[in-house]
Design a protein around this nucleic acid. Structure first.
Lengths: 345, 345
DNA sequence: CTGAAAGCGCTAACAG
DNA sequence: CTGTTAGCGCTTTCAG
């Protein structure tokens, strides 16, 4: 593999000049530049980024820690991230952490060794050691679809309180009065916030809040199924449920059907995310959409700014959510009429 | 950021010794090793992989070119790839090419400059320039879910002729006699092969082959919708269709429903892939499953072998597919009885 | 078992 | 405008 020495020799110049044309540095005579370029083409030279990085240049490589790229939400996020990173001239290394602290730490150590220019974090659980390590190292980092209230880091995400509120209010306005919540562990800020929104909506409309109706630790399809099983044990069964996200919603729908409940007639459900999956389920999912792809874009813009040492306009970028109404939630009226004569009208 | 010089000084040894313990080279007195390790911990030293790579060590970074990580098939594949790469100590850089030759080439150039140790290709269209460039450079490369018959490269994939055959035969055995095909461009080997399987099944069962029933250039959901629109113009309409993959199948189902056709009663459809999406659609998709995750694993094992200069047992690794029967395909009997009295029995 | 020294391929002053 | 030279942080003979 040819080096700048080979190029220099062939073009009859010094390596400094070759380096100059390689880096588009000013002050090279056009004719000389042409000669160097010709030599580069002739020898099929590939400018060694490893050597360049060693002399203080950037690596133009970013790390992206996320729980699981196979999860459609993160896959779409990753697409936004990679597209934008590529636009800025960076490559991105994907790291699946499964939310395991030891995996997070191992990746961080490795990425630090590779001297990446910045890190995108979508994987931090509360009080992440890995995150602290990154911060200590001084590596630029931004959180995406996550935040760490105690750490003063940049983050790009939606207002999850609002998301929970929007989902719940939709159900209330449809006429539901007994609404359950199936969310993740409350150690996760996102989960806390969506629950807060749920609570706020119930309160605002004067509906009773019940501990029994709140199911925690729901993760993915299986989490949704479990929630339904628990909910079905209750004496006062809900007519609707707010799911932590689309995957949980799908699990809820699946288990409800399995238990002989029609969705949405006998159980309405609304999700959060609006991943590609939401539009293809049976029934199609009513869900609170996050601007997933765009979130990836903005997170990268943030990170690149940080890397370039520019000061950021703001540290917390909140994007808008919006309700996408499909078929998984309807008024409970039909059911009431059929079964009880419709006491609520 | 501390260097081996700092470590050497603090431990009272030379940099050579530090390097030895860093690389687990033999021939370092245990006590010396301990002193060095202590210094490493004290100074919170991070072994610079960029510098190491410059001296001829590997970068332990792999490139992965794929059309679109947001596509569930590639997302799951990427998970298998990253998991296994991580297991072998490699990181992976994801590159979305959208099947655009110029994007492929740009990524390849960049990755080559970064001196990655190997490349995984899931993005090559026929006669890819990018692939030729990689081959010329001597970089280890393996194809996954793709093959390049003209180039003698390692590849890991399923038997796509068989996949097309399996899907079609299932429909035939269900009693369908007019079966359409909605596939991608025939410039793509995968598409050619699945069509071959379709043709072979029809032939084997003595069914007529019709050009009209074969719709090409179907990509994703929209491609499936278009196929149905075309098929509906036909005088002799199909009662079933074999889709190129799950996404196309979903598009077919959506458009069929929109046109007032019940699936599977009035139109059966079977997909290929069995991505996460297949199980949640309405109706759940009958599909020919590929071992997606495991394909990623094996591709990486192949690539790592290549990188380590070991000779491969074989160049073409063919994994098994299997039919997953769900609800999107049934016998056409019900329909026939209802509409025509059931001439086929 | 350990150290001195010569690179790896490139960048960036500093001279000219 | 161009060349010389000293590193960047590490690995690896080659001596000792």
């Amino acid at each position: 593999m040819p080096t700048i020495y080979d190029i220099a020799q062939r073009a009859g110049v010094s390596i400094a000049t070759v380096s100059r044309v390689l880096n588009h540095s000013p002050g090279v005579k056009e004719e000389t530049r042409q000669r160097v370029m010709a030599a580069i083409r002739d020898l099929n030279y590939s400018h060694n980024a490893v050597a360049a990085a060693l002399t203080g240049k950037k690596t133009y490589t970013l790390g992206f820690l996320l729980p699981d790229i196979a999860n459609p939400f993160f896959a779409e996020l990753a697409r936004g991230v990679e597209d934008r990173a590529n636009y800025h001239g960076f490559n991105v290394i994907i790291c699946n952490t499964d939310n395991k602290p030891h995996k997070e730490q191992a990746y961080v150590r490795l990425l630090l060794r590779k001297r990446i220019d910045g890190l995108l974090f979508a994987a931090a659980s509360a009080g992440s050691q890995a995150l602290k390590q990154v911060q200590k190292s001084g590596l630029p980092v931004v959180l995406v679809a996550r935040e760490a209230t105690d750490m003063d880091l940049c983050s790009v995400l939606v207002d999850n309180v609002e998301a929970g509120y929007t989902a719940t209010r939709h159900l209330i306005e449809l006429g539901h009065r007994v609404i359950a919540l199936a969310t993740q562990s409350l150690t996760i800020k996102t989960s806390q916030d969506r629950r807060l929104g749920y609570l706020r909506a119930l309160e605002e409309y004067g509906l009773a809040i019940s501990d029994e109706l709140q199911i925690f630790d729901c993760r993915g399809i299986e989490g949704g199924r479990r929630a339904v099983r628990q909910l079905l044990q209750l004496s006062k069964k809900p007519t609707a449920v707010v799911a932590f996200n689309d995957m949980v919603a799908i699990g809820i729908i699946a288990e409800a059907k399995a238990a002989g409940l029609a969705v949405p007639e006998q159980l309405s459900v609304v999700g959060v995310d609006d991943t590609i999956i939401a539009s293809v389920t049976d029934p199609p999912l009513t869900t609170v959409a996050q601007p997933i792809y765009s979130m990836g874009h903005q997170a990268i813009d943030c990170l690149v700014n940080l890397i370039n040492g520019e000061n950021l306009p703001r540290k917390r970028i909140i994007l808008d959510t919006h309700l996408v109404i499909r078929k998984s939630a309807t008024s409970p009226a039909a059911l009431c009429r059929r079964k009880t004569g419709g006491s609520t009208g």
